[in-house]
Design a protein around this nucleic acid. Sequence first.
RNA 1: GCCGAGGUGGCGAAACUUGGCAACCGCGAUAGGUUUAGGACCUAUUACCUUUUAGGUUUGUGGGUUCAAAUCCCACCCUCGGCACCA
Length: 903
Amino acid sequence: MIKYSPQKIERKWQRVWLKSGIYWAKDGSKKKKSYILVEFPYPSGEGLHVGHCRPYIAFDILSRKRRMDGFNTLFPMGWDAFGLPTENYAVKTGIHPRVATRKNTAFFKRQQKSLGLSFDWSREINTTDPGYYKWTQWIFLQLFKNDLAYKAKMPINWCPSCKIGLAAEEVIDGSCERCGAKVIRKEKEQWLLRITKYAERLIQDLDLVDYPEKVKTLQKDWIGRSEGWEVQFPISNSQLPNETKSSEAREEPKAPRASINVFTTRIDTLFGATYLVLAPEHPFIENSKSLPAQAGEIRNSKFVQKYIEEAKGKTERERISEVKEKTGVELKGLVALNPANGRKIPIYIADYVLVHYGKGAIMAVPAHDSRDWDFAKKYNLPIIDVIKQQQDTSNKIQDTKAFAEAPPPLTPRLSASAYEGEGILINSDRFTGMKSEDARIRIGDWLQKQGLAKKTVNYKLRDWIFSRQRYWGEPIPLVFCERCALRQGSGQGWVQIPEKDLPLKLPNVKDYKPTQEGESPLAKVKSWVETKCPNCHGSARRETDVMPNWAGSNWYYLAYLMRGIFSFQFPISKYKKVFKYWMPVDWYNGGMEHSTLHLLYSRFIFKFLWDIGAVPKSIGPEPYKKRTSHGVILGEGGIKMSKSKGNVITPDQVVWRQGADTLRVYEMFMGPFGETITWDPKGVKGARRFLEKVWKLFGKYEIRPQPIFNRLGRPALIQGLRRNPKSEMPISSSILDKVGTNPKSQAPISQLERLLHKTVKKVGEDIENLRFNTAISALMVLVNELSKNKEQLTENNLKVFLLLLAPFAPHLSEELWQRMRYKNSVHLQPWPKYDPKLVKEETFTLVIQISGRVRDKVEAPSRISEKEAKELAISSERVRKWIAGKGIKKVVFVPGKLVNIVV
RNA sequence: GCCGAGGUGGCGAAACUUGGCAACCGCGAUAGGUUUAGGACCUAUUACCUUUUAGGUUUGUGGGUUCAAAUCCCACCCUCGGCACCA
């Protein structure tokens, strides 16, 4: 018998499939569509490792099965090729990033092809191609036109090693995500996108999509919505006499006076606010010099300035590492007035308050906030309890007076920590005795009437820094024109390049290093920077920043639909029909690490495109219907695979030695798809053994290898394989409607036949649920069963088995399919159907329990009645032994399962 | 600290959706066969314990519900992942 040598058959079929284009999806087909998307990779120089392959293989299996189900299935692939590693490589070697990218993508593509993945290569995209980034730039211009892109000076996270500004999302533990260097803060002009404008919708519309709860939670937490109140604290001179009166008496609003606004979610604790804290960057400190006389002035400004300077020099990381040791400085000479009771409270600046959240200032309630508690303890500030915990929540509070008894204000508190929960108000004037949840509304309303508070919603989400001072990215298609700036009067002066001039191509440079000041290398190219204003034709300067690496992946799921790769033509309305047919993506799989980055960004951009009508309204405001994530593959010993650890397993190693089908089966069999697993070289052997076993089953179909290409280089062996991608995928009609059953024969249905039907059901359902490990297990059971008896190796049994195996081991299945001399490709066959009646067994093992313990098992017909089953149980020898001398209390019968006799 | 996932043989795991024979399938191991050897392949055994034609114990720990719990409920312990001064 010919040996199973995957090296020989895999290459062959890969060539046939590619030439015949059987995996190409058809635009505008009448068939139901299925758009399956896996995240496209960044083609690094190292190539793929086995972990990358896991989602590709899994969704290749799903795509193949969906095709067999009759879906017009789109499963595309492309390259997210702009980015830092390629640029750093260029800095080091002087090799142009374009050249490196070409080499890397070729490498990646070769590896992917060697796995036998059924990508529609006719739709391949590359984000670095001018034909592609023309659209990335076009989207930016639309954002700019709609006031969603703006430039602002801001402190950014600066990586001194990469010489690049990082988005908050790219900073991991205070270090650069890419190189691990410590991030510092630096002021820089940056382009930003107003993703915050979409914050509410990005939360709301999560209800429309099928994402794992975990991903939804991650996104919601990242956006961080919180409802609360903005409260105004008037500022006063600490020298003035105390104006504390009863809260009733100070209703009349005076002439506008200096004040500080804070954001709080716990306005119910307002009476416990004993000081204010401002972030060091808070503008109030700058502006305090021009305070009205009654407000006074900061008397220790030198000291304050020193603290501010220190805080600014600290990185976020340093600030965070000092969580336990809070620092701050009092603004001497000023006090704030608590709007609830007019009490004078001191004002501090401290770096535990963040400038970019809320109003950059807080009211400190040390009794009910652990951070304020720590600060108050350190600086010996008053702590006033205003919420009393309800001891017994089951008893409703009848006597609120009992709760009104509280330690007198301003006495040092005895408890050891802040109480942050809900409860009953104390020390809160006329609100005392109220539930904190209710007080929140009542106090808020009361202050709102006086114009001292307003209800607001705050988000943690910040606008998205959308520029990088680097080379290898999409140029931002704007120029700065002094003349237009003056004329506009707005001081803006940014003029967009006309759409017809897109793409704005990235010029060649010799030196890829950013300047010492952190400007893009493009800033050194005079001929590029100096240009004419498209508006007034005067001299103007180009923007030299480029877009971040996320820009190209915001919309790539649309690019796959825009046929005519890299020559997509304006206007976008040309593509409405294909968008309408294919969108939204039916199933999108990607890494968990993208839950708050790419996934959130691309949802935002899609919503924007939907808003401006660039995509049809009918497809809805969400790009992805369903999202799943794959688990990571760890190296041997459970360590993350990395070049530096030298434990990287490449698919090539496995494909060359064991074959692509073995790699596919192993990766799918090794554990649940969504979970982290450790690579085990011994496990690979098991997968290979399984395929060898399959090979042997088909021993009788041994044929001499035939030429598969004719002289013209066309596939010769298979007739009728679709060669023209425009034609509909042909489906062979010769397949049985039901597997295993021969309608003519009246012979009893064999156990094997039932197993066949069961396996068809299980494998099909398991694939749709990404339970590949159990699907393969079921296939193994079937193979073991088939190989027990040669008689069972009938043509029909083998055929059905091959169809089930085809998505998992496409090469082997195709080879055996051809050896059986069937026409057409196994991958163009319909998925077998099972008979629900035959999935159920005719007999089952009736388990007999005595008081819950298994004592005997007997074969019984499936439809056995309760009475019969009980009689059967009691008639058993063993059972009699166990119940002898004991009274039967109760007998439980579960149809199809067991009888339990309680004694 | 907060959020999430998980804890089952020597190992990867299955059974959890729907409470009903715990450990499918695979790896490894042991014995035998085959082979010049190694490897490959075939057959059998393989959760643990005991006094082994049989019985007992076992799903992180403790409790609860139930005729019956890996599965449902409560408390705790441990591991992994993510977020983290967001007022």
